[in-house]
Amino acid sequence: MLKLFRAIALIEGVTTIALFCIAMPLKYGAGNPVLVPPVGLTHGLAWVAYVLAMVVCLPGKGFTMWEVARTFIAALFPFGTFLNDGLIRRKQAALALRDAA
């Protein structure tokens, strides 16, 4: 399940980059807002999927309350999901070791 969550987090992060680094500069820098609605919608859906995936994928995986809060907070800041990936990757590796034993 953490593999699925990491994939959703990656998508959320990439859509954030697309919105902030492509769509919004085109809108405000070049006066061409055509990409903001589709990229914004895609990012919004990815964000909702990220939060829902937290609810489904994280329980029972050894996350402390702080780590769950940190994972949610990561979705509120640009590039936060990328910075939080190390935590998720370590939890995924620890679960794999636990399950192999």
Rank of each mutant, 00 (worst) to 15 (best):
Y28N: 04
T42G: 14
C21M: 10
L19E: 01
K61M: 13
P59D: 04
A93I: 10
N32C: 09
I73P: 10
G13S: 03
F77C: 15
I88Q: 10
K61F: 03
L83S: 04
D99V: 03
G29E: 01
R70A: 15
L58C: 14
A96Q: 08
G80K: 04
A69V: 14
T81A: 13
L76D: 14
A94Y: 03
A101Q: 03
F5E: 03
F79Q: 12
Y28M: 01
L10I: 07
F77G: 05
I17Y: 08
A100K: 02
F5S: 02
L19D: 02
M65Q: 14
L58I: 14
L10T: 12
V34C: 00
I88D: 03
Y28W: 09
F20C: 00
N84R: 15
I11Q: 04
I11D: 00
L95Q: 05
Y50N: 09
K3R: 06
D85W: 12
R98T: 12
F20M: 10
T81W: 08
P33Q: 04
W66E: 15
Y50R: 03
G86K: 09
I22Q: 01
F72R: 10
T64Y: 08
M65C: 11
P59I: 09
L26I: 03
R70M: 14
V48H: 06
G44P: 10
V56H: 12
G40S: 03
A101V: 05
A18R: 02
W66S: 11
P37S: 11
L41D: 02
R98I: 09
L95A: 06
F63A: 12
K27H: 06
A9D: 02
A100E: 00
L10N: 02
F72Q: 09
L26E: 12
F77I: 15
V36M: 05
A93N: 12
R70N: 14
E12L: 13
P37N: 07
F20S: 01
L58T: 11
P25Q: 04
A96Y: 00
A93M: 13
A69G: 06
A18M: 12
Q92V: 05
A7D: 03
D85G: 07
G62C: 05
A23H: 09
T15A: 09
T64F: 06
V56W: 14
N84S: 02
E67I: 09
F79K: 04
